[in-house]
């Protein structure tokens, strides 16, 4: 899928050096289509998850990666709620793919229904009227985003499945590396493992169904493709994605002030540091 990034963003990124694995740039103020209401669903669906939590679905089911403008609006709502976490008594604020899970703090069960009602109307209000949110949450949300470059060793021992992906896609290993590292990815949300980022923006030509038999362990730092998504594994885990490379970048460190390297809204770019195809 294409995430529809403006050429301004691409130009900015191509102009920078790749030597540091963690560089922060402000995205230009003119972010793509951020206010195009056309791409947004008319009425979000709100479900109760137990007595103290809500699930807001902002996108129709059936699409694994929501349109970027929709997800950008979701990040803006998230930023707004983060700023009011205490005031609104929010315990968890978890953006998903085109959806948002909110859980209230446990205290004062007898007030829970009132708090849920207030929360529901405020979230829908933020969603429908992002310009009324404090200090233009949409722009603030965008300006907080970082661009992070992740150096990757593709193929060989670091990427044992590169040849499999090559056989499936009909592309040479060199072309796969070129296309994967040419991509500009956005972190849609985190989950699955601490610091695991769901990335949007994989070249559709690189898509490949998951392995029939999952590996017992995918090493930490593995860069992999599963279905139409690509990801970096912050820690070792069993999994069925195809490993095409590895990075030494630490994606999650519980002792770090910012434990997760990648946060929703961040832009990610992979750069080939060498490959043994």
């Amino acid at each position: 899928m294409s995430c529809g990034f403006g050429s301004g963003v691409l130009g900015l990124l191509f102009g920078c050096s790749w030597h540091s694995c963690r560089q922060f740039y402000r995205l230009p103020a003119m972010t793509p289509n951020i206010d195009s209401r056309a791409a947004l669903v008319a009425t979000p669906r709100v479900s109760r998850l137990g007595e103290d939590a809500l699930l807001f679905l902002f996108t129709a089911t059936g699409t694994s990666t929501p349109p970027l403008p929709l997800q950008q609006r979701l990040w803006a709502v998230t930023t707004e709620l983060e700023a009011r976490r205490e005031e609104m008594g929010l315990l968890e604020i978890v953006p998903g793919m085109g959806n948002l899970l909110l859980r209230l703090t446990a205290s004062n069960a007898h007030q829970i229904q009132t708090r849920i009602d207030v929360l529901t109307s405020r979230v829908l209000n933020f969603w429908n009227n992002p310009e009324t949110a404090s200090s233009s949450a949409l722009n603030t949300a965008e300006q907080l985003r970082h661009t992070i470059t992740i150096p990757v060793t593709y193929g060989g021992e670091a990427g044992p499945d590169l040849q499999t992906v090559s056989a499936h896609t009909g592309l040479s290993a060199e072309t796969i590396i070129e296309r994967h590292s040419a991509g500009l990815y956005r972190v849609f949300c985190l989950g699955f493992l601490p610091g695991f980022a769901y990335l949007g923006g994989l070249d559709p030509a690189l898509a490949i169904p998951r392995r029939a038999t999952p590996r017992l362990s995918i090493p930490a730092g593995s860069v992999a493709i599963g279905g139409s998504q690509t990801a970096v594994y912050p820690s070792a885990t069993p999994g069925g994605w195809h490993i095409i490379g590895r990075t030494d970048t630490t994606l999650f460190d519980a002792a770090r002030q910012r434990p997760a390297l990648l946060l929703p809204g961040d832009t990610v770019r992979f750069v080939a540091t060498g490959s043994t195809t």
Partner: peptide, 13 residues
């Protein structure tokens, strides 16, 4: 059959 987007889950779901 339904294809759901990945979404936050909680203990008790």
């Amino acid at each position: 059959p339904r294809e759901l987007c990945s979404a936050g889950v909680l203990p008790g779901d």
